[in-house]
C-alpha cells in the first residue's frame, strides 16, 4: 500500500469533514455558551423541551441551559464517532486485499458491517443521551417526541457526513464495495 494513495484519498473526505465539522463545532460552541434567547432557544422550546416544565413551574430559560449542554455533548460525540468510523473505513479500504478484478465487491459486506455498526452506535448514543433522564440533567427536560426528533436529526446529519466521507475517500480500487461509489468518475 502506498501512503501517497492514502493521502490522496483523504483530500475530499477532509473537505467534507471540515464542512460538517465546522457546522458541528460552531453549533456546539453556541450551545455550550448557554444562550437565553434566539432561534435555537425558540426551536428547543417549541419542539424539544417538554411542556411539563410549565406545570412544574420551571422557567424555559432554566431548562434550556442543561438541554443545550446535552445537545452540545451529543453533537461532539456524534462528530467524533463519525470521524472515527468514516476515516477508519477510508484507511481500511486501502489495506483490504483487492487482488484482482471483481474482488472489491466481496468487501461490500465489510462496508455494510462498518456502516451498520456506526449507525447503531450513533442511534444508541443519542437514545442513551436523550432518553436517559437519570444520567443527564438536561434530558429530564426533553420530551419523548423531542428526543426522537434530535436522535433522527443527528443520525441523518452524521450518517450523511459518514457516507460522503466513505463515498469520496474509499480507495479507488475498492469502490465497488461502497454503495453507489462506482458512479464516481474514474479519476476522482
Amino acid at each position: 500500500m502506498k501512503i501517497k494513495y492514502l493521502i490522496k484519498s483523504l483530500i475530499y473526505p477532509g473537505i467534507i469533514a471540515a464542512v460538517f465539522g465546522f457546522i458541528s463545532i460552531s453549533f456546539s460552541t453556541l450551545l455550550f455558551s448557554n444562550p437565553v434567547e434566539g432561534g435555537t432557544i425558540n426551536f428547543l422550546g417549541n419542539h424539544i423541551i417538554t411542556d411539563e416544565i410549565e406545570s412544574q413551574g420551571t422557567p424555559l430559560a432554566d431548562a434550556a441551559g442543561p438541554v443545550c449542554n446535552v445537545f452540545g455533548y451529543s453533537i461532539v460525540t456524534s462528530l467524533a464517532t463519525t470521524l472515527i468510523f468514516g476515516f477508519g473505513w477510508v484507511v481500511i479500504s486501502h489495506f483490504l486485499n483487492v487482488d484482482g478484478p471483481g474482488k472489491s465487491k466481496i468487501y461490500s459486506i465489510y462496508w455494510i458491517i462498518n456502516s451498520a455498526v456506526f449507525t447503531a452506535i450513533l442511534i444508541i448514543l443519542c437514545t442513551f443521551v436523550f432518553f436517559s433522564g437519570d444520567s443527564f440533567l438536561g434530558s429530564q427536560y426533553i420530551s419523548g417526541e423531542g428526543a426522537f426528533t434530535l436522535t433522527i436529526g443527528l443520525s441523518v446529519f452524521y450518517v450523511l457526513m459518514y457516507y460522503l466521507i466513505v463515498l469520496l475517500g474509499t480507495a479507488r480500487h475498492n469502490r465497488s464495495s461502497v454503495f453507489l461509489a462506482f458512479k464516481l468518475p474514474g479519476n476522482l
Binding site: M1, K2, H173
Partner: peptide, 12 residues
C-alpha cells in the same frame, strides 16, 4: 509488491 499494489497502481 502484492497484487493489491498492482490494482491500486492501476487506479492511481
Amino acid at each position: 509488491s502484492s497484487l493489491r499494489d498492482v490494482m491500486a497502481n492501476l487506479s492511481y
